[in-house]
C-alpha cells in the first residue's frame, strides 16, 4: 500500500536519516521507534507530503494518506461536532455520526465549544478527525500524548478496527498500543554526517 525506497530526509538543512526502505501493507501497522530528535516527526511529515524527501521515493495511492501531528488543529470557537464536520466536508465525507462520537467518548461534549475542553479531550477530538475523513493510511505522530489509560484503550481499539478493515498506519509512539505491529528502529539509519553530497544540502558548501 505504501512503499518507501531508499528515502533520505533533512531537517533545516541537516541530514537526519538515509537509506530507509519499508513497505506498509493493508491491514498492517508500522511503529517508528528511536530517541528524541532522530527524525520521527520529519519522517512522518515527509511521508505526508509536507516536505520533499532529500532522496528516494515514496509510493502511495493518491488521496489515501491522513496525517495527525502534535497539534490537533482544533478551532476553539467551534463546537466538537462543528470541528469534526468541517474536516469531514473538506475530505468530501458525510457528517460525523453518533457512533464515532461514542467511540471517542465525545457524545456528552458534542455541543461544547472546543476551547472549553481539557487537553485529553482535545486530543480525543483530534483523533476522532481520523475516523471521519475516510483515509486508509494514517500517519500518527505521538497520538497518545495527554490521553489517559482508558482513552488509549479506546484509540487502540479504533486503530485495530481500522487495520481489520484493510487500513494501515505508521505510528511514532513510545507506548505499547496492544496490537501486533512491525517495529522499525530508526537508529541504524541515522546519518553519521557527512555521508551525503546531494546539492540540496548545506553540504554543498563544504
Amino acid at each position: 500500500m505504501m512503499r518507501v525506497s531508499d528515502l533520505a530526509i533533512v531537517r533545516g538543512g541537516v541530514p537526519l536519516l538515509a537509506g530507509l526502505s519499508f513497505a506498509v501493507e493493508p491491514g498492517s501497522a508500522l511503529i517508528l521507534r528511536g530517541p528524541n530528535g532522530i527524525g520521527k516527526t520529519t519522517l512522518l511529515r515527509t511521508l505526508a507530503g509536507l516536505q520533499p524527501p532529500a532522496a528516494g521515493q515514496i509510493e502511495v495511492p493518491e488521496d489515501s494518506v491522513a496525517y495527525a501531528s502534535h497539534a490537533d488543529g482544533i478551532k476553539g470557537q467551534l463546537s466538537v461536532v462543528e470541528n469534526l464536520n468541517f474536516w469531514a466536508r473538506v475530505y468530501g465525507m458525510a457528517d460525523v455520526t453518533d457512533a464515532v462520537l461514542e467511540r471517542f467518548a465525545l457524545q456528552d461534549l458534542r455541543a461544547r465549544a472546543a476551547a472549553t475542553l481539557s487537553a485529553g479531550q482535545k486530543r480525543r477530538l483530534g483523533l476522532a478527525r481520523l475516523a471521519v475523513i475516510g483515509r486508509k493510511i494514517l500517519l500518527l505522530d505521538e497520538p497518545t500524548v495527554s490521553l489517559d489509560t482508558a482513552s488509549v484503550g479506546r484509540f487502540a481499539s479504533f486503530l485495530q478496527d481500522h487495520l481489520d478493515a484493510g487500513g494501515s498506519a505508521v505510528i511514532a509512539t513510545h507506548i505499547d498500543l496492544g496490537f501486533t505491529a512491525t517495529v522499525l528502529e530508526l537508529a541504524p539509519y541515522k546519518l553519521d554526517a557527512p555521508a551525503l553530497t546531494a546539492s540540496d544540502f548545506d553540504e554543498a558548501f563544504l
Binding site: 509536507l50 495527525a68 501531528s69 502534535h70 497539534a71 488543529g73 478551532k75 473538506v90 475530505y91 478527525r129
Partner: peptide, 16 residues
C-alpha cells in the same frame, strides 16, 4: 491562527 494551532498543516495534507 491556522498555522499556530496546526490546522494549516492538516489543511495542506487534505485534498484541497
Amino acid at each position: 491562527l491556522d498555522y499556530e494551532d496546526g490546522a494549516l498543516e492538516l489543511i495542506a495534507t487534505a485534498p484541497l
